[in-house]
């Protein structure tokens, strides 16, 4: 307890604050809130539109690609289906993908593939693989082993065991996870633009740099609205899949 108090005092003391600058900023903060309340969709609409299209296309393509790659890796990373060498290999891919922030991956990929949404697509796909494969593998490991035994006992091939015993059990959750990742990918797609990987983040970055808070407010409102739509429709689809 006293340790945490000491830490807090040390931590707070190490934060140097230029209170005059903050005081000055309050006026700008107030302008941002005003901009958020009276958003300006029209004057930067061209840029916003381009950014949004990039974000949305990146989101969908990277989620689809992520799911396609994650399914084999997820199966390979499930202890009850994969032999030990395959298991180790797939688990290390997952660890690698999960260790780094999207932004850091984006920086590397942008410097390799150049600016634009293609680097963003690769970034989001790479990040999706770690997320989806890990959760899918856990889900496969949680499968009812009696159902797997029953199919195996009929003399089915490995591939048929996956198709008949595992797939029916994990399919609803795989769809749920994919929709959840779609949601995350959209949110991330609005950020990686800051380092040049395409999407509405670049537009937002420019608007804030130019102190155009009404345009920035408009972009944020659009992001929030799209996140809401994705969240609601995915909860609807999930209920329908059950």
């Amino acid at each position: 307890m006293s340790g945490s108090v000491v830490y807090l005092i040390l931590a707070i003391n190490s934060v140097e604050v230029d209170w005059f600058r903050v005081y000055e900023g309050l006026e700008r903060g107030w302008r941002f809130i005003q901009g958020f309340l009276t958003p300006d969709f029209s004057s930067r609409w061209q840029d916003i539109q381009i950014g949004l299209i990039e974000s949305l296309t990146m989101t969908l393509t990277s989620t689809v690609a992520g799911v396609l790659v994650s399914v084999p890796i997820g199966i390979g990373a499930a202890r009850n289906l994969a032999p030990a060498p395959v298991y180790m290999f797939c688990r290390s891919i997952i660890t690698l993908s999960r260790s780094f922030q999207e932004i850091i991956i984006a920086i590397l990929l942008v410097s390799m593939f150049g600016f634009g949404p293609f680097a963003g697509f690769l970034t989001l796909t790479f990040a999706s693989i770690g997320f989806l494969s890990k959760l899918l593998a856990e889900d496969i490991e949680d499968c009812d082993s009696a159902q797997i035994d029953a199919i195996r006992a009929s003399g089915a091939r490995w591939w048929q065991v996956v198709n008949y015993a595992v797939q029916p059990q994990v399919m609803p959750r795989l769809i749920g996870l994919s929709l959840y990742r779609l949601d995350i990918n959209f949110r991330e797609s609005s950020v990686i633009g800051i380092v040049g990987a395409g999407g509405v983040g670049a537009t937002l970055n420019t608007a804030i740099d130019r102190y155009e808070y009404d345009s920035a407010g408009a972009i944020l409102i659009i992001i929030i609205a799209i996140v809401l739509v994705v969240e609601y429709s995915s909860s609807y689809i999930r209920r329908w899949v059950q």
Binding site: S14, V15, E16, V17, D18, R21, V22, E24, G25, L26, R28, G29, F32, I103, R187, E188, S190, V191, I194, G201, L204, N205, I208, D209, Y211, A216, L220, I223, I224, V227, L228
Partner: peptide, 20 residues
Amino acid sequence: SINSLIWALLLVAIIGPGLL
């Protein structure tokens, strides 16, 4: 909905760069 990096972007513009 808004990533912490975007919050940071906004706040740096408003109250200036730094830990705060």
